[in-house]
Simulated scan of single mutants.
Amino acid sequence: MGERVADEMRPPTVVTLTMNPALDITSEADVVRPTDKIRCAGARYDPGGGGINVARIALVLGASVSAIFPAGGASGDLVCRLVRDAGVPFRRIDITEPTRESFTVNERSSGKQYRFVLPGPRLSIADQARLLDAVRHAATGAAFVVASGSLPPGVPPDFYQRVSDLCGKVDVPLVLDTSGGGLTHVRSGVFLLKASVRELRECVGRELATEADQLAAASELVDRGVAHAVVVSLGSQGALLATAQHRQRFSAVPVRTVSGVGAGDAMVAAMVVGLSRDWSLTESVRFGIAAGAAMLLTPGTAACARDDVERFLGIVPRAEDVNVIRA
């Protein structure tokens, strides 16, 4: 099996790269206990991985998209079928090892969610080169490239810096959402970096106990040239935005959560769609918060509904400017 390219009539607005896609399996049980067999009721299968989720939701929000990812084995075949069924054009890079599976169990008695994530297949140097070539080809004429998700075994931690350098050469802004070594080894060239507080803490190597600490750390990444803008997602507390010109605080939209899986990816998707419409960063982050809230209403990693996103956008509070005192 070779590389497969979905036909498109025009260049996509948003190109996504998922280095470690997954077959997301979601089920539920009355109680989750150690040692006992857990009898689960039914199963939902969704294509997963950061970039794939971003592409699915950006498509729902009206953007033209193209998803690039490696896939192998029966699980990879099913991921591709599910992506195709979602209407997302994609390019599959065939690999030898099977695509990973991720398993989520919702405990009905408590409302808690248990998530089990496997490390993923090992990608060869040749696999990595073909993925970069696919990004280079797809990015021509695109408005944004989004690299989202973890790096699988065999991929060096500076891989996303190589993606950033590639995007710089073809003059396409890069939006990055990752963690671990894939994040800490990024040095420059990212247009928009989205990070949780934990991921931001990994970047700067210190505790970030207060909002002021978090904004100062985000501003530090901007000052170092890692990213033009940094968005810090705070879950139910909203988000923070730092650029060289200003820092802002955004409040969240309170919703009753069905599943928290994919909310961050929905946020990234909506921010990129907003930017592709020439919205300001501030308005794009508000759109991202609305999409993240809408995603909380969906089971598994099912894509949120566009009507919900638009409805929540109407009630996302306006951003507040925040001053940062530097040490």
Rank of each mutant, 00 (worst) to 15 (best):
A63T: 02
T301W: 04
A239Q: 13
G182Q: 03
E97N: 06
A229M: 15
E101M: 10
V15H: 00
L166W: 00
A252F: 01
R277L: 12
I95R: 02
V54S: 01
I38M: 06
A263I: 13
G49V: 08
T298E: 14
E310C: 15
R4P: 08
S66R: 14
G72I: 05
A229N: 09
I57H: 07
G292I: 06
C304V: 15
A319Q: 05
G87P: 09
I325D: 11
R306A: 13
D265L: 02
H185E: 11
R224K: 15
A303I: 00
R306P: 11
V204C: 06
A239T: 15
A138V: 12
P11L: 10
E211G: 14
A291L: 12
V309E: 10
V232F: 06
F116M: 14
P12M: 04
A63H: 04
V79M: 10
T104E: 04
T210H: 12
H137M: 02
Q161M: 11
L82G: 01
F287C: 12
A55M: 04
S259D: 09
V322I: 08
G180C: 00
A6V: 01
R318N: 12
Y114D: 06
R224E: 13
V172P: 00
V32A: 08
P11Q: 14
G141T: 07
V146D: 03
A134P: 00
A270G: 08
R81T: 13
S233N: 15
G50E: 09
P70V: 04
A71L: 04
R136K: 09
V285S: 08
V190P: 08
G154Q: 02
V197L: 15
S280P: 11
L17A: 02
P121G: 07
V5R: 08
V272I: 05
V79P: 02
D308M: 13
G262S: 10
R92P: 02
S196V: 10
G50S: 08
G180T: 00
W279L: 09
L241I: 13
Q113H: 06
A319S: 14
P11I: 06
K37Q: 08
A86E: 04
R206N: 05
L59S: 11
R326A: 11
